[in-house]
């Protein structure tokens, strides 16, 4: 497909004797949100950490904007923003310090992402004093510091209340609306709603599913 800018081919990952991923494959165009759904322990986080460059696959390829990602590690930081399942935040330091860390410089208080994530009033607070939702929004702001075209999110709104989930869903729509690609893993039915493409990770293999199929599988816990 001519508009395809992201291609994941036959990604596999083995830990000792355990084959966590055997054939994870999908493609994505700009303005697309790809959802990877599945049960806990199914390999979703493993797949996302591979695509984010945190770990190497046992096999397969990943091409993004014409770059073979596994050939040069530097492409990951330039092209991929990554939000892990746990927030990569220094709890004893302030919101401002954490933003400085990931931005690599002093930050301006009128940064658009601060307004979107409603962090402007929280800059001088210590991260450990923030609520779960505030920490998650801060983590997202830190992840997208380099304005990368691809955003990988591992269960972005897990354990958050409805209001926080709404903020994050709106941000995902805004991100894709500006031409970005979002790849997220979830087992949350509301998060599935924002996805344009859905894949169910089953026995280490990505299976394309519709929204209804994904919801059905999640509800039934089908393996």
């Amino acid at each position: 497909m001519e508009d395809t800018v992201l291609q994941v081919d036959h990604i596999s990952r083995r830990f000792g004797k355990k084959q966590v991923l055997s054939n994870a494959s999908f493609t994505a165009k700009k303005d697309t949100c790809v959802g990877i759904v599945g049960i806990n322990g199914g390999g979703k986080s493993t797949l996302l950490t591979i695509l984010a460059g945190v770990q190497k696959p046992s096999g397969g390829s990943f091409t993004c904007y014409g770059h073979e990602m596994f050939q040069d590690k530097s492409f990951f930081s330039e092209l991929i923003a990554y939000l892990p399942q746990e927030n990569p935040l220094l709890l004893d330091l302030s919101v401002r310090d954490n933003l400085r860390l990931w931005f690599g410089r002093r930050i301006e208080e009128d940064l658009p992402v601060l307004k979107t994530m409603q962090l402007t009033e929280l800059l001088d607070l210590k991260v450990k004093d923030l609520s779960g939702g505030m920490k998650r929004r801060l983590a997202i702001a830190c992840a997208v510091c380099k304005d990368q075209p691809v955003l990988i999110m591992d269960e972005p709104s897990s354990s958050l209340d409805l209001h926080q989930k709404e903020i994050i869903r709106n941000y995902i729509k805004e991100y894709t609306g500006q031409g970005g690609i979002v790849i997220l893993s979830t087992h949350d039915i509301q998060e599935i709603e924002v996805c344009d493409q859905l894949y169910y990770l089953e026995n280490g293999v990505t299976v394309p599913v519709t929204y209804e199929e994904a919801v059905g599988r999640l509800k039934n816990g089908v393996e």
């Binding site: 930081s77 092209l79 310090d97 931005f103 690599g104 410089r105 380099k146």
Partner: peptide, 24 residues
């Protein structure tokens, strides 16, 4: 431009990580 930003950003993050680790 992203490649350049990436390289300088990486160095900036390393420096910031050092300063913030000292602070901690």
């Amino acid at each position: 431009s992203r490649e350049k930003a990436g390289k300088s950003g990486r160095g900036g993050t390393a420096v910031m990580y050092f300063l913030l680790t000292c602070k901690k």
